[in-house]
Design a protein around this nucleic acid. Structure first.
Lengths: 183, 183
DNA sequence: CATGAGTTTCAGAAATTTCTGAAACGCGCG
DNA sequence: CGCGCGTTTCAGAAATTTCTGAAACTCATG
């Protein structure tokens, strides 16, 4: 039984859900698990959120598809219990990985496909734009892959260095000059 | 009148629209403008996409709210013409800024509000979790703000350095040790 | 100030997404 | 096997979002 403040947090996650690409119930379930100290089973969630059992079931399935919850079992209890990872950075990594998978990768695939499939069914401008877009996505996802290799500790280190990093970048952009770097 | 390949690109953007937090028509309009060499007016879009005039009007309004299109005018023509920025990096910056505004900032605000408003209507675990989440968002948005100050050229430089950056980060994480940096 | 080219608004229709209760399913145990 | 406990599926209901046509609005021009 969540306190007033917890309730408000949960409702906020529910409302934000649609902006984050999940639905209200899924957002609320996640918020509830996020705050809860102990693992919760489906019926705990039904009780806390006042939504139907099947809705909770589907919501949990979706959270599992997003890799955002962990399944637990308790001694002598057949029910599934769920938690969110303790480590906040792990949550962020998962979130970024999953959003990349859903929002970026399909477009990169499509762009490559279109460029191969029909190299001359495009006027010059459209072809250039599509190629530029593909290159940019490749650059960003390549960078992402490299950052994702690093342990959290190093990543946090880079984060804290912040703008100091930029001093190191002087001139590095020259290696492969961009057409529009000034705009 | 888009070619077959352009059509496919436009339809893809339409389908991805819902994952990106815009609707199908808005995605299609954006794709059309993105590929088009010359600015287009609302009626050009109606013709190309076969959707209603009012739908285009609303879609353009939404794209303007996202800062994703630029308004142009032509000599002796009262109609509004629209383009997307030539510079791909500008587009990325806008996209990130707007998503941050819609998806992150409201939650950061809410977290601060809840922490202030009701400092003791939470058990220890929930309070800790909310504080950790707030700190993490603050760290990420702080880093974002710093990176956003840099000119594109330097940003691309950093991007190209990729994993080499990590060498610099050794030990930097120690400044403010994290509880869960190992997980 | 009336016209008309152009844009925006808006109420309802259409489409899509979310939610529910009921039924089906899975599985360990006596 | 068949019972009990728990989960999943699914078809339709409810809610929400998107889309449309018609009407309202704006404003430069004759």
């Amino acid at each position: 039984m969540p306190t007033q403040t917890e309730q408000e947090f949960i409702l906020h996650f529910g409302e934000m859900g649609s902006r984050w690409g999940i639905n209200r119930t899924v957002g609320q379930i996640y918020a509830l698990l996020f705050l809860s100290q102990r693992p919760l089973c489906a019926d705990d969630i039904v009780e806390a959120l006042h939504v139907s059992r099947s809705n909770v079931s589907m919501g949990l399935k979706e959270l599992q598809a997003w890799n955002l919850v962990r399944l637990r079992h308790q001694q002598g209890d057949r029910r599934d219990y769920f938690t969110t990872p303790e480590d906040m950075w792990e949550i962020v990594r998962t979130l970024i990985a999953e959003r990349k998978k859903r929002e970026i990768d399909p477009t990169l695939t499509k762009l490559r496909e279109l460029e191969l499939q029909a190299p001359d069914d495009l006027d010059d401008h459209a072809r250039t734009r599509m190629a530029e877009l593909r290159e940019l996505i490749e650059a960003l996802t390549g960078f992402y892959d490299e950052m994702n290799q690093l342990e959290t500790e190093r990543l946090v280190g880079l984060l804290k260095m912040g703008a100091k990093l930029s001093k190191l970048a002087v001139g590095a952009g020259k290696v492969l000059p961009l057409k529009n770097s000034k705009a």
